[in-house]
């Protein structure tokens, strides 16, 4: 353990692929290796490499059209985004999930907070959360606490023999909703049906907190949020990370990074990560733009 920790500190200090210093597979890290993806036969991702570990925050920044959203969708397994190389890998620990459906990926602990989530009228938020939670954590709390490594004290209590205690579940959802300043009334509305931009983002955040994934991808969670909502969403991500979830934040701006300290910042240009650095890299982008990396 001590050695791991030492190496880990070393790793965060130097943004070098963890393959060299540390065996990420053993630690259940999210490993993205040589990810190439096409949309309508057009190559968008051109070999992306990333290693995200539990409890880390990685920011992926890049100019318009650099492939940021494609990265999010390809990771989650959207059928329109085809992985175009045999060598491409997406692994959670030792398990390669690249050929799994999005449903199976979710069950392996992956989560995507959508940039503009679609409305599903009549599918109530609370109902959706309950069904999704049951599907993902079918075997109850042991799965949540042990195999995922995500520490979630509230959900640890939820399940005794695989069944989710509905009352306890509702209570937990409401606590998270309160934390995110989501009015209770939204929980019994159809998901995203008639929600404002800000409400949608908060609702995506709420799902991440409740479902307690191993790895969560936030696709432009910060766009269209006012300062107050931004702060609330950032505190949600902070909580998620403290619970042990590894987080990828895809963003145009440094805005949300004022409230969260990323362990790594990646610059994505033309479907490739052209530079990886520390939090300071985001500030550099803020003042100089992407010019340096695009030309």
């Amino acid at each position: 353990m001590e050695r791991k920790k030492y190496l880990w500190e070393k790793m965060t200090a130097f943004p070098i692929s963890c393959k060299i210093y540390y065996n990420c597979e053993m630690d259940g890290a999210l490993i993205i290796s040589d990810l190439r993806a096409t949309v309508e036969d057009k190559l968008i991702l051109n070999g992306v490499d990333m290693h995200v570990r539990a409890g880390e925050i990685h920011a992926v920044m890049g100019p318009n059209g650099s492939g940021k959203s494609t990265l999010a969708y390809a990771l989650m397994g959207h059928p329109s985004y085809r992985i175009s190389s045999q060598k491409s890998l997406i692994k959670i620990g030792k398990k390669n999930i690249v050929s799994l459906s999005s449903e199976e990926r979710a069950k392996e602990g992956l989560f995507l907070a959508f940039q503009s989530p679609i409305a599903i009228p009549g599918v109530h938020v609370m109902n959706l959360l309950r069904v999704a939670y049951q599907e993902i954590h079918e075997q109850g709390s042991s799965l949540v606490t042990k195999s995922s490594g995500v520490h979630n004290p509230v959900f640890g209590k939820l399940s005794t023999n695989g069944e989710v205690d509905l009352l306890a579940f509702r209570k937990t959802v409401k606590e998270y909703a309160q934390m995110l300043r989501i009015d209770d009334a939204f929980l019994s509305r159809g998901i995203h049906d008639g929600f404002s931009g800000g409400e949608k983002k908060k609702m995506e955040m709420l799902q991440a907190l409740v479902l307690a994934p191993k790895y969560a991808i936030f696709d432009e969670i910060d766009t269209g949020l006012d300062v107050d909502a931004l702060r609330v969403v950032a505190s949600g991500i902070d909580r998620l990370v403290k619970n042990g979830t590894g987080v990828i934040i895809i963003t145009h701006y440094q805005r949300i990074l004022k409230y969260l300290r990323p362990d790594r910042v990646h610059i994505l240009v033309n479907g490739k990560i052209v530079k990886t650095g520390k939090a300071s890299l985001a500030k550099e982008i803020e003042s100089h733009g992407y010019k340096h990396y695009t030309t």
Partner: peptide
Amino acid sequence: FYLESRGIGKAKAESMIVNGFI
């Protein structure tokens, strides 16, 4: 895709959407 990304299988997702509709 949205529901599947939440770990819900296709058949169940469809029935949720239909039940939501009515």
